[in-house]
Amino acid sequence: MSELLTIKDLHVEIDKKEILHGLNLSIKEGEIHVVMGRNGSGKSTFTNTLMGHPAYKILKGQINFKGVDINNLKSNERAKLGMFLGFQYPISIPGVTVVNFIRQAIKVLKGDNISPKDFRKRLYEKMDLLEIDYSFATRYINEGFSGGEKKRMEILQMSMLEPCFVILDEPDSGLDIDSLKLVAESINNFKKQFPKTSILLVTHYQRILDYIKPDKVHVFLDGNIADSGGPELALELEKRGYDWLEKAQVSVL
């Protein structure tokens, strides 16, 4: 399979503070990559940089997506190339209903003008999978949603917008056991429907990996990838924590 995303020597700062220090990563079409790492190690800085958050400044390095250098592309241009970020902390937009939000997003992304009826049918199917009550369709997006409801809403958007590269920043945080299963199954379903889609999944918990099988696992440490491996690396982290990696790094230096 061909290269979808290639990142070379990525340095990123926010508010004049460098957070990512020369990160390298490449993801092929159809692959699932998992990112783990301590709080504050730079995972969300990375996901937001990928999505083009204007506050994160690329000091050095390159992000190449589908053969295009996207360093200077705006978030919406990246979305139009097929990128999607499921937020760690989804934002509410008062007055904008879920159904309008998703419908308009499909329209701006794909120029699609599917009939309101077909759209609703598709939306309800996906809501069924995530066991989201239909009443959420006419609620204002993320306004007053519980933590878990917000996370499921992100997955719903993913399955409606059909991106070819999905970044999920802690889709499993704050979910109860049943919700976790629903979210994982929705991701798997989506992946089955679109096998060429690549996924970058940020998580703190090995548990979601009981459902979703990664090709690679990366560990973030102080704004860089300290180690990469297969699914077994996640299990090891679960057992041993992050300290040993830090020590291993020091001994390499």
Binding site: G52, N76, A79, L85, L109, L161
Partner: peptide
């Protein structure tokens, strides 16, 4: 709110549309 604009732009809306 810049974060709202970013959220919308990540879904494909231009800054004007957002």
């Amino acid at each position: 709110d810049e974060e709202q604009i970013y959220y919308l732009m990540s879904r494909g809306f231009s800054d004007k549309e957002a």
